[in-house]
Design a protein around this nucleic acid. Structure first.
Lengths: 110, 110
DNA sequence: TTTATTCATTGCAATATTACGATAAATAAG
DNA sequence: CTTATTTATCGTAATATTGCAATGAATAAA
């Protein structure tokens, strides 16, 4: 137990849940918002901006990278992280479709 | 440790993260999709539809209820669960704004 | 070369999540 | 009243997440 039974669900259900999990932490939202605001930014900025330890930020960045939402390019001793445009679009579409599958079709009956 | 430092983040960041967490499990996505499809439905249906144990489904339903995304009304021995329309709208708006804060403003620089 | 800077990784502790059997609570059916 | 049926809750085990200090790896600066 303690492990999600992904085989019980559709590809789409797992995909939505997986991407939701990637953004299911305020630090990761803060990171994404900061990347959006400053277009591209370096890891050190984030440690100052957010009050978490460097190791913790690095871990959150890795999770976002593994989900495909951001990408990083090495620039000397620094790393330039930014939003992955295509993946962001895909995320947006996936969630939009999911959210609209309700408002399109349904009226509450209880 | 192991506890999220919510005080470091804005209300909005915590809100988005919290709602993302509520839908960050394929079983909960499956439940929401089923509620959407069948407009209103009972718990027992979900146990059959999804392959998880009754106690597990009940737990997921509670999490969705705590996030405000669904509501349940007792009907005999059964409970009629359905999407909470206002909360669903709020969720949709919150995420839409978040997603569009990127595509509105930014071109990748790396 | 030596030293500093930046970021990733490792290892660990605390806590949260996922899943389920067992059981309780409430109503319906007999 | 007795017996299902349905759902919630409790307890527990397995695993995942969060956070950080310490350390490593790589480049830049001196």
């Amino acid at each position: 137990m303690g492990v999600t039974q992904t085989h019980l669900f559709t590809e789409e259900q797992n995909q939505i849940a997986h991407l939701a999990k990637a953004i299911a932490h305020p630090a990761r939202i803060a990171i994404l918002q900061h990347l959006i605001k400053s277009k591209s930014c370096i890891n050190g900025d984030l440690v100052l901006e957010i009050g978490l330890a460097q190791a913790t930020i690095s871990q959150h960045l890795r999770e976002l990278k593994e989900a495909g939402l951001i990408q990083g390019s090495i620039e000397g001793t620094r790393v330039n992280y930014c939003i992955h445009p295509e993946k962001w679009s895909a995320l947006k579409s996936l969630f939009q479709d999911f959210f609209e599958s309700y408002s399109d079709c349904c009226e509450p009956t209880c």
